[in-house]
Design a protein around this nucleic acid. Structure first.
Lengths: 157, 157
DNA sequence: CTCAGTGCAAAGGATTTGCATGCCG
DNA sequence: CGGCATGCAAATCCTTTGCACTGAG
């Protein structure tokens, strides 16, 4: 995002590079990169949209619910995973932006599905300009922005 | 928002105008504009930021929890109230945009507080241009957008 | 061996709902 | 009077946590 990118951030990684990077990041907090944590990261990296816990579990049936929740929590703390909360029902999880790429979300207000989309550079540029202004105007220290587009997805129309 | 504004939308209403408008909108679904519903609307209209249920209850101690939840739900269905879900913990509620004005939110990731802010016209213009593009590119029917700025509020710094 | 990780089952917490009562139209 | 509204208490449901067990280093 704006500001200094995290050390080791990458845009296009191979699977191996991704896992090495995650492994490093976990070790900084004395966390092991276990089989199930690796499985979660693999599932998320193979998806083109944020997934719910049930979706993650059914993508890899070897995972157990409570550990998946626990590991998602730790991966989130370690800056590997990003948690998205939209409505009620399940939260969505995706890889952190610096392990994937900067993007925004299309949120279906009918079924809750979330898709990724990348905003045009012109918009992002204008956005960043505005963010700088706001930092000056308000006492707010902005660390991230989120541009969600709400509507009805193709399936629900 | 973009598209046709709802009939009866206003930017600057007196309290009376607001309540009349809400009353009309409720009657269209055979809902009465009762004392407690009016109280909720009054609390929200007097706030310059979205409020949680505990905040609403403490702003008007005559309200009871379950009825407040139920009424907020009905007001939301009737298009009078907008529900904002950010993290876990409590949801936030505000008057619908066409009863207040188009704005976005500064979300404190530390204490959960949400403040309103109005984006510059240039940004909104660019944003709308992008939205139109996206509607064409994806099968997504966009009904609203949400630009949240995440960071740390003045109190938490 | 040690200590983090796992998984089951139980607990938590915001929100919803069943139901008997109250009250507006 | 009839039906929506209310409020208490109980139920829901996603998520977290306690605890005993397992496994990697």
């Amino acid at each position: 995002m704006h500001g200094t990118p995290r050390l080791g951030a990458v845009q296009n990684t191979t699977d191996d590079q991704l896992h090495d990077l995650v492994s490093d990041r976990l070790q900084q907090t004395d966390l092991r990169y276990t089989t199930s944590r690796r499985a979660i990261v693999a599932v998320l990296s193979q998806s083109d949209r944020p997934l719910t816990l049930p979706e993650i579990l059914s993508a890899d049936t070897s995972l157990s619910q409570s550990s998946a929740y626990r590991n998602l929590g730790e991966l989130t703390t370690a800056g590997v995973v990003h948690r998205i909360v939209v409505g009620d029902s399940f939260a969505h999880y995706e890889l952190a932006e610096d392990l994937s790429s900067h993007h925004h979300h299309l949120v279906c207000t009918n079924c809750g599905r979330i898709d990724d989309y990348t905003a045009p550079a012109t918009l992002e540029r204008e956005l960043h300009r505005t963010l700088d202004d706001i930092v000056e105007q308000t006492g707010f220290a902005i660390t991230a922005h989120r541009l969600d587009l709400l509507g009805t997805c193709r399936n629900c129309r």
